[in-house]
Design a binder for these strands. Structure first.
Lengths: 340, 340
DNA sequence: ACTGGCACTCGCTCGATGGGAGTGCCAGGA
DNA sequence: TCCTGGCACTCCCATCGAGCGAGTGCCAGT
């Protein structure tokens, strides 16, 4: 038996009420709060079907119903419209982001904003190096045998690494290296650089070849292998809202997961083009987050995507509102990046 | 009546037992676990005195005793010896830190290490700009009217800021600015720079003066006003150890406090020279942390101090062990910094 | 000054009780 | 065929009281 419209309506009502009250919702309360036009008994029959299909369940016999992960999924996919943001929210976003002075600032402001608006844990990935291009490379002598390599990406990210040279290098040597490196790499997509770096060493004057080899090694490591994706986190205190009920009693596993950058990157770093992704409870591959939901999306200047952002909260969350906020923030951040 | 030796011994025993078991400790259990050489009744009398003096209290009539903040304070000041680290721990520290490739890496490794060793929340401040000297300033043209200002401090910290110029600047202009800025500021203590920056504008050729003024403004902001102290945090999951008892039932206020960088800086940024500071419960000025203790110290190459680090946990913590670990880690980090 | 003894306090656990919310099912009606 | 009102049933939860036990304070004795 397929689900007719009223059953879906009942499911929606259950989800909405449960999200709001955090208490199992019964048939009588349902018909009172929503004008379904039928009696509690009818609703009960519908509920029985919904339960059989796995969309809701009872915490114990003769308690109200609670949505299952599958129930939320159906709700998100078919029953909810993304809730447009209020003008006040839009203004808040703009006001908050407009004053950012550099990339670090943008990311920090964004993550706090997102946490505040959604009242959940927010994660923002820095623009991915892998998706950036090299804007400029700078070599700063620290001592005769040490250079500081500073790489500036077109996304505004700046990475620095210390380079230990095999032998002393003169100021002229450094300038020469600097010119060569920039000629070859500036403007290149990060992904294309590994092939080019080898050429750098080959073309180099024999005198500087050793130094260049050293530099090349660090370059490779910085640009690709250890293309360390950074991220920012905020709003962990929001996990404590909603008492002990969410996250089955203990925040422990969730906090643990949040400490692992690798895990967070997996969560928000999927980056399907301009699609908002919602992972509900068990859909998360991470065991520690089986009782959590994640709403994430990509951001970037224009249509290209350079990084991900998202929020994490209990499966019992306001999906329409959260999705709308995440999308809106992502778009504003993208616009901001486009201006640079 | 002053506290004689045995009463102090009793207090120590109470603190140690309570820290270990997390349960109020009674007179009988005390004499059994520690060979105090007296009867429970005697211990009870001592306890009555200790309670009167405010060092311990009873959660309810006829339960065991629990140390008060004042009790922990006395314990830390007079009753505990700093516990030397085991060789295994020393090795762990070395092994963990030795592979760090740059400052970011050092800080991240340190904070994780500290969290892991103490099993508490760890905070590490990046080397403070205010306590650093300028090593080098680099100007990278982004477009004709935009520069990226990169400042490298002698502590290894790198800060960058975007500078919007009033009008287009040629490559020669930028080189000129770069030379002037470095001549004036390189090697200077950060604290001395504000006075020097004004001179920069005055000395500048009229043609570049507008540009230099702009640059100077950003410099000032970066170097002093917005001398944004960064920090790293780890181990929040450790807050959930020890059940609901610590932090009087809710992590909320603690998590909130941990999100405020300003608060964290106040906690670990006091930086008395080479002194380990312990704040116990109510001694914290931050209301949200009245049920927590903080152990912090400064670190730096040699005797100078460039930043702070520390851990935060329940007042019921292993003070001798924690203090020892915090000190040891600080020293290792200092040594590491000295090598650069 | 310390000890053993003793009465007392009080939090905690356990089981029984009653109320209430919610359910499933069924027979009757549109 | 689908909806509705009624009814018996289930089971959670809050309340209560009893019994237990750890721990205390006090006191008299050594």
């Amino acid at each position: 038996m397929s689900l007719d419209d009223r059953k879906l309506e009942v499911l929606r009502a259950i989800v909405e009420d449960y999200v709001e009250t955090q208490e199992p919702v019964g048939s009588k309360a349902l018909v009172e709060r929503h004008h379904l036009g039928v009696s509690p008994a009818t609703v009960r029959n519908d509920m029985a079907v919904l339960e059989e299909e796995g969309y809701i369940r009872q915490p114990h016999t003769s308690a109200g119903r609670v949505p299952t992960d599958a129930g939320y999924r159906l709700f998100v996919d078919r029953l909810s419209k993304v809730k447009p943001l209020t003008p006040a929210e839009r203004r808040a976003i703009e006001r908050f982001l407009i004053n950012a002075v550099d990339l670090d600032d943008v990311v920090h402001r964004t993550v706090r904003l997102l946490a505040q608006l959604t009242r959940q844990v927010a994660v923002v990935q820095y623009p991915s190096l892998a998706r950036s291009a090299v804007r400029h490379l700078e070599l700063v002598p620290i001592s005769t045998t040490r250079l500081m390599l500073v790489m500036i990406a077109d996304t505004g990210r700046v990475e620095q690494r210390l380079v230990e040279l095999p032998g002393p290098a003169s100021v002229e040597d450094v300038l020469d290296l600097r010119r060569r490196v920039n000629e070859k790499l500036a403007g290149q997509k990060m992904a294309d650089t590994p092939a080019l770096v080898q050429g750098l060493v080959d073309d180099c004057s024999p005198a500087n070849r050793g130094t260049m080899a050293c530099l090349a090694a660090v370059l490779l490591e910085t640009l690709v292998e250890r293309s360390e994706e950074r991220l920012a986190l905020a709003g962990t205190a929001n996990l404590t809202r909603g008492g002990v009920l969410d996250f089955q009693g203990t925040l422990r596993p969730v906090l643990e997961a949040l400490e692992e950058e690798v895990i967070l990157l997996k969560l928000i770093g999927d980056l399907e083009p301009s699609k908002t992704r919602v992972r509900i409870g068990d859909e998360n591959e991470i065991d520690n987050l089986r009782s959590a939901s994640v709403v994430s999306t990509g951001y970037g200047p224009g249509v290209t995507i350079v990084g991900g952002l998202g929020v994490l909260g209990p499966t019992r969350m306001d999906y329409p509102g959260t999705i709308a906020t995440v999308r809106a923030v992502a778009r504003y951040v993208g616009d901001l990046l486009a201006q640079n």
